[in-house]
Structure formats: structure tokens, C-alpha cells
Nucleic acid binder design. Structure first.
Length: 595
RNA sequence: GGGGGCGUAGCGAAGCUGGUUAUCGCGCCGGCCUGUCAAGCCGGAGAUCGCGGGUUCAAUCCCCGUCGCUCCCGCCA
């Protein structure tokens, strides 16, 4: 290798190199064999350079060239020469030169490929994951991984500049079962006991605040044993942050600055700051989501006042039961077929709506669907919604939350169908004033909407116990283009308030001590007021790369059922390993023989 | 736990209301070819139509079951 070590990359050669001898190392991207002359596109992660072996080459070299196959790893020594004007390839950054080969060495050969390594692979995801090393060779994947390292670097650069310390926290920690299901790791030294992998470094970063590291961050791996989604993996990466002596505005400022820096450095995009703030209630009410896609407006409107004056009993009875009626104006969709409207209705039903009412706006008023129930108010409705002939009005009546989310799903779908979002745009917003507690129907109790260490907003402190449902927390999400990008809060540092929260969610003193005792103990030693946030790195990169699955920006992701097709994890382990851990399997019968 | 979609050659797809040698593009193999850059031209190999069962004279197609993947609901403090 010494002799054939590269002196240039496949992306950097240009006319200025003309006449110089270079050695290139890379992979055979394409071969164009004309019999008498061979062209080889040699690829490395910096680019592609055309290698020529022509009639002047020695027979042995020509023979060697004719034996090359795609994706052989090779070294080439040759002279850079300018291409004749008519041979220049303007689509290639190195298109005005080529390398005339003097020596060619095959460093390793390559089996026939399972799929094409092209700009964008056409193989199915599962196959790509099985051969992830090949998939990652494509320029499109290389670009995304590069974006990821660049963005991560920009994060570190920014936070370092503002005095944040990058501190590692352990991956083997105590299981604190609340929230997501923990991944457990058995302890060999302590039979019957388990570590958990962190769902986030939450408790440790708060303890770091007690320790006085008043600005902390970590690019942290987090593990949650829940079902995966396009934007959710068993294992993901957070930009975990925590700060002392701050209010939420301070957190917002840091994150806005950080996002601006990252987008500028990597995409050369200027973000507008400060990001808009939207209350949870408004987000739900207007967009039917706590993570609205704000690249388009298409806001929902309240339809209750029309519903209650109509003859439409389906709507009126919902209102009498304290529900809500929401309407959405779908511009230019008045020509939608019954089938298409049904598809929208199905979308709404997934989120619990019982139906989707519709009527078309015509030059003469409202028509079709439920229009006949609203004929007396037709003009008023048209004016109020700002409707025009050719539009479609859609409405859902249900519990407020169901009405909002189901019609919100219709809104999202219309946004996609009508291509309302301009590609390459990024619309950030802070969602604020989340309720602190949620009522758990199943267990019949209040539970923390975020986590139990979230500070209630000050004005609610007095009636915490009286009306938990009305209490808003010092809680915030950062959303972008319809994704939740970050979630955070100001934490409780007052043991008295903490006790009251535990009390409301039905946590006994003993239970709190057993689970979080170490944190509560630390909080007896002068904890500073503090708060933080944790932007999801995978989702951030996904949005920046304009992908719609985080699997596209994670080097080695799991598939949707938690399997890594490349290394075939999870897998069975040796009896001996289990024995050492004092673990006996108790599998359902059929799965015993499963591999 | 539930719903939608998909499974046909190495890859991506087509295959009508069931009908005889299952089609196309890419790749692969062989040949030709001195300027290509998604090279071209000629020839060739390659398919238990995911798997099991059923209906039928006949199943890639219809039915039942099952496995795998994918998107979503639930779940994800």
C-alpha cells in the first residue's frame, strides 16, 4: 500500500493539477469499456474522477482494467490531463480533467452487488439495512451523514462558546419506571438486580446543576422500549441541555441561537428569531396538533355557533354534552369526489372522529353533504370562514380534543395533498403553556404530562390540589415542520412543591424515596433553580435533510420491529451467559423454537 | 393490542373479470466496439410468483391461515 497511497482525493482534482502525477484510492463507480479504451469513474467520499486507460497503455494494464468490476477497491497512479473541450462533462465537478493511468492496483474485489449504489437507492429499506455498509456508500447517504457530523460539530461549537460544559452521564443507571418502558440490563455481580439504559440523562443533569455545572450539555444516547415509528427509534440521540438560574426565556434564547448557528453553518439558511410562541391550547384549537406544521396556515375554525343554531342533531347533541365543533376550509377542494372526501373521513376516524361532515361552497351558497342543515346560515358561514365558490368545508364534532386532533389530521393530509408546504423551508415555533397533569382514564388518577419534576406556573401554585387539570406547567416544546423537535421544562427545586406534585399523582413518600431518593436527597443540599431542554438530534437532521424517516439519517438504525437486519440483533444468547446472570427464560410455547 | 399497504429473477416493477412458453427496465455472464461519462450494439443465463392449505379441469390472480417488511392508531413521563 505504501507505494500506492493516495496523494489526492477523487473530488479535488482540477485543471490546476494538469501535468502532475497523482495516486488515487477509491471504489470503481462505473466502467465504460470501449474495447480499445476504458473509462473508469473512481469514487471516494469527496467525489468522482474519470480514469482513462487508452491505446497507449501497456497490454498488461489494459488487461487488468478489463477485469475490473463495480465497487472493486483500487489504487490508481497516473497523470492529470485536461480534457479536450468537447469531452468536458459539465455535470461533474472534476469534469474538465481526467487521469491517464500508468499503474493500477486492485486493493480488493467485490462480489456482485445486492442493489445499485446510486445517488438514491431504489432498494427496499429492509435490504438497504441488511447491507448498510453498501447503502452508506451512496452519495445521498454520505451527504446525510456528513450533515449529521457537521450539525453536531456546530452544536458543540456554539454551546462551548456560550460556556456550556459537555459532561458524560452513565448508561447503566437505576430503573425509574414512569413514562416509557425501560431497557433492562441484568447485573452479573448482583444476581436478580438490573440496571436500566437511560430514557434520557434527566436526573443526572439535574444533579449536575446541584454540583454547580450551571451550563451542561451532552450528545446523549437515549433508549426507550416502545414501538417505533418513522420519527421514533428504540435508540436515539438527544442534544441534552440543562441550565441553572434561568427562566424559560433564557432557554429559548440559547436554543434559538444554537439552531440559527447550526442552520447557518450547515445549510447556509438564516432562521428568523425569536421563534413564534403558541400556546398548547391555540395549537390544538387552530391546527389540531401540539406539533403543528406551520409551513402552511389552513387553520381550523370554531363552528359551534353555527352548529347550535342548525337542525343538525349530530352536532347539536355533541355540543349539549360539552363537546366542540371544528371546521376546516379546504381551498379549491369543492370538486373533490365522494371517494376523496371519504378518504379524508377515514383519516379523521383514525384519530377517533365518528364522521367528517362536509359541504361544498358554490356561487349560490352551500351544497351537498350536510349543507341542508345550514341553509339558513349559509351566507354567514361563508363570510365567517372566508370561503369562496369552489371551496370545501369540512367539520368534526366530538370531545374538544378529539375534534381538534382528528380534523387536524385532515389538515395535515390536505397540506400534503395540496403541497402547501414549500420544500426547503423550516418553520419553528415554541409551544408553551402545556397542562401539567393529564387525567389517566385507565388508572383513574392524575399523572404528570411531562415528568414529575416540572415546575407548575407560579399563578397556579395556590390551586394545585384543587383543580389539577387547569394547572399549566413551565413546560415547552420546540416544533418544526410538524415534528416535535425538543421538549423541556423549568424544574422544581423546592422540596415542598415537589412533595405536593408527588401527592397529586398519587406517589407516596416511600415510593418517591425508593425511586428518586437520590435526587431528592441531592435537592436537600442547596439546589439552584434550573431548567433545560433536549432537542432530538435525529429528528433535527431528518428535517434538515428533508427526509421523512429518521432511519435515513441514523448510520445504523433498527427497523420498525426493533431488529437490525445487518447484525441480526436482537438474538438468542448462550445458555452459559444466561446462567451467569441467573436468568431463566419463560417463553410462550411457540416462541421457544423461534430464532 | 389494532388498522392500511406491500411481498413476482440479484434490484425495481408489470401481469386485465383465473387459461397453456410469467413480461419489462437495471444489474449479471459472453461477444463486438478508440472518447464515454446512466456509454452503445449483439447474444445468454437467471423465478418453488414469501410460505402452508383450500376452491377449480386449471391459481401469480379467488378464499383461509401464516411469516416478513412498511406506514399509522394505541404506546412514547
Amino acid at each position: 500500500m505504501e507505494k500506492m497511497k493516495r496523494t489526492a482525493t477523487c473530488g479535488e482534482l482540477s485543471k490546476e493539477w494538469t501535468g502532475r502525477e497523482v495516486t488515487l484510492n477509491g471504489w470503481v463507480h462505473r466502467i465504460r469499456d470501449h474495447g480499445g479504451i476504458h473509462f473508469i469513474s473512481l469514487r471516494d467520499r469527496y467525489g468522482v474522477t474519470q480514469i482513462v486507460i487508452d491505446e497507449n497503455a501497456q497490454e498488461a494494464l489494459r488487461q487488468k482494467a478489463s477485469e475490473l468490476k463495480r465497487e472493486f477497491c483500487v489504487a490508481v497512479r497516473g497523470v492529470v490531463r485536461e480534457r479536450p473541450a468537447e469531452m468536458v462533462n459539465p455535470d461533474m465537478s472534476t469534469g474538465d480533467i481526467e487521469v491517464q493511468t500508468k499503474e493500477l492496483e486492485v486493493l480488493s474485489s467485490c462480489d456482485p452487488l445486492p442493489f445499485h449504489i446510486d445517488e438514491k437507492s431504489d432498494a427496499k429499506e429492509d435490504l438497504r439495512l441488511s447491507y448498510r455498509y453498501l447503502d452508506l456508500r451512496s452519495f445521498s447517504m454520505q451527504r446525510k451523514i456528513k450533515l449529521r457530523t457537521d450539525a453536531t460539530f456546530a452544536v458543540r461549537e456554539y454551546l462551548k462558546k456560550f460556556g456550556f460544559m459537555e459532561i458524560e452521564t452513565p448508561n447503566l443507571i437505576k430503573s425509574t419506571p414512569e413514562g416509557a418502558r425501560d431497557f433492562l440490563v441484568p447485573s452479573r455481580i448482583h444476581p436478580g438486580k438490573f440496571y436500566a439504559l437511560p430514557q434520557s440523562p434527566q436526573l443526572f443533569k439535574q444533579i449536575l446543576m446541584v454540583s454547580g455545572f450551571d451550563r451542561y450539555f451532552q450528545i446523549a444516547h437515549c433508549f426507550r422500549d416502545e414501538d417505533a415509528r418513522g420519527d421514533r427509534q428504540l435508540e436515539h440521540t438527544q442534544i441534552d441541555m440543562e441550565m441553572s438560574f434561568v427562566s424559560k426565556e433564557d432557554v429559548f434564547e440559547v436554543v434559538e441561537g444554537m439552531m440559527s448557528h447550526v442552520f447557518k453553518q450547515t445549510l447556509d439558511v438564516d432562521l428568523e428569531t425569536p421563534f413564534p410562541r403558541i400556546t398548547y391550547h391555540d395549537a390544538m384549537n387552530l391546527y389540531g396538533s401540539d406539533k403543528p406544521d406551520l409551513r402552511f396556515d389552513l387553520a381550523m375554525q370554531d363552528f359551534a355557533s353555527f352548529a347550535e343554531r342548525s337542525d343538525f342533531n349530530a352536532f347539536k347533541s355533541v355540543l349539549q354534552d360539552g363537546g366542540a365543533v371544528k371546521a376546516l376550509l379546504a381551498p379549491g377542494c369543492g370538486n373533490y369526489s365522494r371517494k376523496r372526501i371519504n378518504q379524508l373521513e377515514e383519516e379523521a376516524k383514525i384519530y377517533g372522529a365518528k364522521g367528517l361532515a362536509w359541504m361544498k361552497v358554490t356561487e349560490h351558497g352551500l351544497d351537498g353533504g350536510v349543507a341542508k342543515f345550514f341553509s339558513a346560515q349559509a351566507q354567514e358561514i361563508i363570510d365567517s370562514l372566508g370561503a369562496e365558490a369552489g371551496d370545501l368545508i369540512l367539520a368534526v364534532a366530538d370531545r374538544w380534543e378529539t375534534a381538534c386532533t382528528s380534523l387536524g389530521a385532515v389538515r395535515s393530509r390536505l397540506g400534503k395533498e395540496l403541497e402547501l408546504a414549500t420544500p426547503g423551508t423550516f418553520r419553528f415555533a415554541w409551544i408553551v403553556d402545556f397542562p401539567l397533569f393529564e387525567w389517566d382514564e385507565e388508572d383513574g388518577r392524575w399523572e404528570a404530562a411531562h415528568h414529575m419534576f416540572t415546575m407548575p406556573q407560579e399563578q397556579y401554585l395556590e390551586r394545585l390540589e384543587e383543580d389539577p387539570g387547569s394547572v399549566k406547567g413551565d413546560l415547552y416544546d420546540l416544533v418544526c415542520n410538524g415534528y416535535e423537535l425538543a421538549s423541556g421544562s423549568i424544574r422544581i427545586h423546592d422540596p415542598e412543591i415537589q412533595k405536593r406534585i408527588f401527592n397529586i399523582v398519587g406517589f407516596s413518600e416511600e415510593e418517591a424515596q425508593r425511586r428518586f431518593g437520590f435526587l431528592l436527597k441531592a435537592f436537600r443540599y442547596g439546589p439552584p433553580p434550573h431548567g433545560g431542554i433536549a432537542p432530538g438530534l435525529d429528528r433535527l437532521i431528518m428535517i434538515m435533510a428533508q427526509e421523512d424517516s429518521i432511519k435515513e439519517v441514523i448510520p445504523f438504525p433498527k427497523n420498525n420491529v426493533g431488529v437490525s437486519p445487518m447484525d441480526d440483533s436482537p438474538s438468542l444468547v448462550d445458555e452459559k451467559q444466561l446462567k451467569e446472570l441467573h436468568i431463566a427464560l419463560d417463553l410462550p410455547e411457540e416462541e421457544n423454537t423461534d430464532q
